[in-house]
Amino acid sequence: MLNKLTRWSRIKSPWILHLNSGACNACDIEIVAALTPRFDVERFGVLLKATPRHADVIIASGPVTRQIRDRIVRIYEQTPNPKFVIAVGACAMSGCVYRGAYNIMGGIDQVIPVDMYVPGCPARPDAIVDGVVKLLGKL
């Protein structure tokens, strides 16, 4: 009974944390664009939170720079269970155009486990919304 209730609340209102792991800002503004009037994910109960301690879903963008790697692990650990990670954009998937640069780890899955990948350079807001919806469908 309690499990059913938590599952229902999780699906109805996932709170997200936007994590920039060295992205070029393109995916980041598309994530913000998904929150603004045209796409407006808030109508599905999705709320952007500022701290990882309140978040259910981490939306990460960008290839992981060596400088920020430890921070990402820390932020992931601060997020309460159960937690999900969506990698947005080609950089977060594989490093994209920065592959081979000396300061790049190449993809967020090198550092933390990823549940969903949204391709695109940058991913369109509708693709990001679709990614969130598909993740919720998996629950």
Partner: peptide, 14 residues
Amino acid sequence: LGYNHRGVEKLAEQ
């Protein structure tokens, strides 16, 4: 600074 340093200038040489 440096959390977002990717090494673009060096990469451009390749």
